[in-house]
Simulated assay, not measured.
Amino acid sequence: MQVKINGIETRYVLSNEGGGPWLTFIHQLGGDLSVWDPLAGYFRGDFTVLRYDLRGHGKTAVSSEPFGIADLSRDLAALLDALGAPTTHLVGMSMGGMIAQQFTLDHPSRVDTLTVADTTGGTLPDGRALWDQRAAAARTEGMASLVPATMSRWLTPDFQAEHPEAAEQIRDVLTHTLPEGYAMACEALRDFDVRSKLGTILRPTLTVAGRHDTGTPPAATQAIADAIEGAQFELLDAAHLAPIEQSHRFAALLETFLERPV
Rank of each mutant, 00 (worst) to 15 (best):
Q2F: 06
E9N: 13
G19K: 03
G19I: 01
G19T: 02
Q28N: 10
G30E: 03
L33I: 07
L33S: 11
P38T: 12
G45E: 09
G56F: 03
G58R: 12
G58L: 09
A61Y: 09
E65A: 08
P66Q: 05
F67E: 01
F67I: 00
G68C: 02
R74T: 12
L76N: 14
L80S: 11
P86W: 05
P86C: 07
M95A: 03
G96M: 10
G96P: 11
G96N: 11
I99S: 10
Q102V: 00
L105D: 07
T113V: 02
T115E: 01
A117E: 01
D118Q: 09
D118M: 08
P125E: 00
R128A: 07
R128F: 03
T140C: 03
E141W: 05
A144R: 15
L146T: 13
H163A: 15
E168W: 08
T175Q: 15
A185R: 06
E187N: 06
A188C: 00
A188F: 02
D193Q: 05
L198F: 10
L206D: 07
T207C: 04
G210Q: 14
H212Y: 15
H212F: 15
D213I: 12
T214K: 15
G215H: 11
P217Q: 04
I224C: 02
D226I: 03
D226E: 08
G230Y: 03
F233L: 10
A239W: 10
A242L: 10
Q246G: 01
S247K: 00
H248C: 02
A251G: 01
A251T: 00
A252E: 01
A252L: 01
L254G: 04
E259H: 09
P261A: 01
